[in-house]
Design a protein around this nucleic acid. Structure first.
Length: 361
DNA sequence: AATAGACCCGT
DNA sequence: ACGGGTC
């Protein structure tokens, strides 16, 4: 039968972790059902309608509700919150009254939409490819995707996504990342003590679990005036060392400064474990003089980056992972401001400093 | 209509 | 160079 694993987005991102409770929210998320509804709408807008803006609006609304320490009892009440206007407020009312949302029911009844949403969950398959698979090839399940992969014009990235579909959907416990970090740092210290390795992403934000692992690599003698080749050599050597100890098992893509691939801690000597999961890994190499902008960028969250960069613009600066530069009247960026710490970047643009753990939005 | 900014891949 | 995907 072709019933898709219509797994309700079991988004459990507010979980209790080792006794520790996330700051504001109490133990349970009281608006879980409403958040689930909004997240499904967000997924639908992104995968099916390619509407990033609507999708983001729903995600933001869900994030706002998730943080409340009380249960929302009406749309009107919710409307006072940031990111919830007329339309979402009405949806909240409908959901509270009937327990469902007609719009969502209709989406779930629509086989094509459901299939597009499912296929979009494969790493490397976005809304365009998902739609193509459904409309041109009639694919509507993961099984079919797997069976017919040879005829579907899939690229390497997508093939890896299919291979590890189940594993990639699993969150990585913080404990596991700590182990990987130790393995990597210990090994690299012997290989080249000048390399500096920093694990970033949600791990650095102290999340109890992460969707992937983000590793930033830098080297004091590698600075932005060096030839580009220098960085790509560092990246390739670094990756090749991790392949040697079997931590890295697949490459999705590798360029001059960025690697995307797969790791499995269970294949590393001393950590043998047959059922260890395959994890998504991103590695980025940067010149040491750009380290602070890079670590800021790579720590995220993505929403935090967007907000902070927007603020930078309002202060007359443009911020990216390389530098902070003043924007002249002509709109052209000036030369980079000298940065000595991550905190410097905040201070230059008058943005209140936030510890990594407080950068989730 | 549109939020920052970029890298990598494939064509 | 551009569209697609991901961070």
């Amino acid at each position: 039968m072709l019933s898709l694993p219509a797994r309700r987005i079991a988004t459990c991102y507010l979980t209790l972790i080792g006794g520790k409770m996330s700051t504001s929210a109490a133990a349970k998320d009281l608006n879980k059902d409403l958040c689930g509804m909004l997240k499904q709408l967000a997924e639908y807008e992104l995968a099916v309608n390619k509407n990033m803006y609507k999708s983001r609006a729903y995600k933001q609304a869900a994030a706002t509700l998730a943080k409340l320490d009380y249960k929302v009892s009406s749309g009107e009440e919710a409307k006072k919150l940031k990111g919830i206007g007329d339309k979402i407020s009405k949806k909240i009312d409908e959901f509270l009254a009937t327990g469902t949302l007609k719009k969502l029911d209709n989406i779930h009844k629509d086989a094509n939409s459901e299939a597009i949403i499912l296929l979009s969950r494969v790493h490397g398959i976005g809304s365009a490819k998902a739609r193509e698979l459904v409309t041109d090839f009639g694919v509507n399940s993961l099984e079919q995707l797997r069976q017919r992969q040879d005829e579907l014009n899939l690229n390497h990235h997508q093939l890896i996504g299919i291979k590890y579909f189940e594993d990639f959907e699993q969150q990585i416990p913080r404990k596991e990342i700590i182990k990987v970090e130790k393995i990597v740092k210990d090994h690299i210290a012997n290989f080249d003590p000048e390399l500096q390795v920093t694990f970033c992403g949600s791990y650095r934000r102290e999340k109890p679990e992460s969707g992937d692992m983000d590793i930033l690599v830098t080297k004091s003698s590698y600075v932005s005036t060096c030839e580009k080749k220098e960085g790509s050599t560092i990246l390739r050597n670094f990756v090749s060392e991790l392949e040697k100890i079997q931590l890295i098992t697949d490459t999705i893509s590798i360029g001059d400064v960025k690697f995307m691939g797969v790791s499995n801690i269970g294949r590393v000597k001393g950590h043998e474990k047959k059922d260890a999961l395959y994890r998504h890994v991103d590695i980025r190499v940067c010149p040491s003089d750009q380290y602070h902008c890079h670590i800021l960028h790579f720590t995220g969250s993505s929403l935090f980056n967007t907000n902070m960069r927007q603020h930078a613009l309002s202060q007359g600066y443009t911020l990216n992972e390389y530098s902070l530069r003043p924007v002249g009247t002509a709109g052209t960026a000036g030369s980079p401001v000298i940065i000595n710490t991550e905190r410097d970047i905040f201070e230059y643009i008058d943005y209140p400093y936030r510890e990594p753990k407080d950068r989730n939005d």
